[in-house]
Amino acid sequence: MSYEMWTEKYRPKSLDAIINQKEIVDRLQSFVKAKNVPHCIFAGPPGTGKTTAALCLAKDMYGKGYREHLMELNASDERGIKIVRETVKTFARTRSIGEIPFKILILDEADNMTSDAQQALRRTMERFTETCRFIMIANYSGKIIEPLQSRCAPFRFSYMSQEDQDRYLRHIIEEENVKILDEGYDAIFEVSEGDLRKATNALQAAASMGKVIDAEIVYSVIGRANPADVNEMIKTAMKGDFLGARKKLREMILKYGVAGSDIIKQIHTEIFRSMLPDSWKVTLSEAIGEIDFRLVQGADVEVQLSALLARMTEAGQELSRGG
């Protein structure tokens, strides 16, 4: 029996098959028809079909042998300026053989590129427009420097509608013969927050257990896949156990590789969701903001967040004293 990751198995193979982002798909199809593509930026939250749209565009454009005309680069793995100088240039400057005179270069997770590398890309893009078109994919277009933005046609991907997600997931459930209760299905929706890749991965992992999927299975799968239990860490600190909280923080960062920005974002949310008196929420928020800024500047994640944990330990003590 053969298996793939369902995210790939059920990834649309052509623009027709993309169920959402109607306006975007329409325009991309018009590019295919005209056999011409401008440089593009695809921006939007994860799991909304950016990469899929770019791949489908290339497939529809070049047909079967599309791989020869396409290069996928990932800025998170190769974010330096060197990659732009060498790999990108080599690929971009040679002319494509065939009906369409240019190739397509997909630069995924482009918001992770250093600004130096982005600057270097500027020239390359201009010089080799004849032979290569760039599709830059990013969560936030804001992290792409202005000069690049102005050279690209922007496409903004939004979260999928409930119906579209439903259609996609139902199709997989049917094809794969997955046994799932309504509560399990609802849970997948709830935890994936509009990220279809996450939903699909969670569904496959839950299905692999070989039981009828209920809500509990889904939560346990997601719980294991998201070790950043920020809430638990905050509770530990508030109880006065700073060392315990720091240990949890360390595990998140070093063992599971959770990003500092993700942790602090969650801390911020949790603090405002908590039962703390408003004055404390504001006090802590002030500290959170400062530390968030420091992290952006590149300070050490663990050291900075530990300082925040110490504040929470203090807040916990003051509160238990009725302060």
Binding site: E4, D108, N112, G257
Partner: peptide, 11 residues
């Protein structure tokens, strides 16, 4: 296989 960075895949 999955069109995403190794860094993100690992995570």
């Amino acid at each position: 296989k999955c069109h995403m960075s190794a860094t993100r895949s690992a995570k």
